[in-house]
Amino acid sequence: MTLDDTDRLILNHLQEGFPIDPNPFQVVAKELEIPEAELIERLEVMKAARVITRFGPFYDAAAMGGAFCLCAMAIPDGEFDAVARQVNTHPEVAHNYERTHRLNMWFVLATETRDEIEEVAERIEAQTGHRVWLFPKLQEFFIRFRVAA
């Protein structure tokens, strides 16, 4: 879809936040000086067109329960696809990307407890014969990321 200026205004505004209020769209519509019904309709259209990936609360992953850890492996070219299939069979593997480095496979492990991270990593090492490097977060920095629409 092609976005017009009003769509862009809405996207830029709502990346900053959405109120917790009985009439939240009315509050936002007033700030943007457009009718409430138009605001909701434009959001529906952008969501259907997948210009909006998600609209709602963003939860801290750890607060939702469980442990998370970024992991990497160095897999030789000839084995890469086979190892990727093995790694991906584990339900604890949440995302997995091929990347340009000697450490060429990067994925996130998501488990109920901290100890399970190491258990799953050891299982993957035993299964594939390749080391799993663990990069747990030590500190997360507050993010101001916005996409200019």
Binding site: L11, L14, G17, R50, I52, T53, F55, P57, V147, A149
Partner: peptide
Amino acid sequence: IIRRIAVAPN
């Protein structure tokens, strides 16, 4: 627990 309530554009 909630980082923010917002739109995530693609």
